[in-house]
């Protein structure tokens, strides 16, 4: 339940103080799901880091045909897809925290958060599309 939504309408009787209602909810006025997802995606990327670095090393000095062949193989495609998904989500949450910390104008903040979502999703989808295209060999 959002605290701001209850303005203007009669509040249901509650023993909870205003402080108690918002305690632990943070600046985002909602739960800790973003905090938790930031940790999940961080752990995921840490686990994937060695395979990802090895994959990039394998591609060094190769031309497009060689790179396409390696990137199109199933285990490498899966590792990169997982890494792309985790990093897009992680960076979306991280940038949102930065925006919420430093952008104090409400309209500007909402616009920035929206653009952050668009950017993160666009980068993730473009990269995912590239991997799938390489995997399908089209």
């Amino acid at each position: 339940m959002s605290y701001t939504e209850s303005h203007g309408s009669p509040k249901p009787p509650s023993m909870r103080t205003p402080l108690g209602r918002v305690r632990n909810l943070g600046a985002a006025h909602s739960g800790t799901s973003d905090f938790w997802r930031q940790r999940i995606t961080g752990v995921a990327m840490t686990l994937l880091m060695i395979p990802v670095v090895v994959i990039v090393m394998m591609l060094l000095g190769r031309n497009q045909a060689g790179a396409a062949q390696i990137l199109g193989s199933l285990p490498i495609a899966v590792i990169l897809l997982l890494f792309i998904a985790a990093s897009a989500w992680h960076m979306k949450i991280g940038m949102q925290v930065v925006i919420e910390d430093y952008v104090h104008n409400e309209k500007l903040k909402l616009t920035a958060i929206m653009l952050n979502n668009f950017f993160s999703i666009a980068v993730a989808l473009a990269s995912t599309y590239a991997i799938l295209k390489l995997s399908s060999g089209v």
Partner: peptide
Amino acid sequence: GIALYAGTLLLAWWLIAAA
């Protein structure tokens, strides 16, 4: 973190180019 955010453009460009 902010630098890596911008750097994903390079990563996406590289993957799209390979494809």
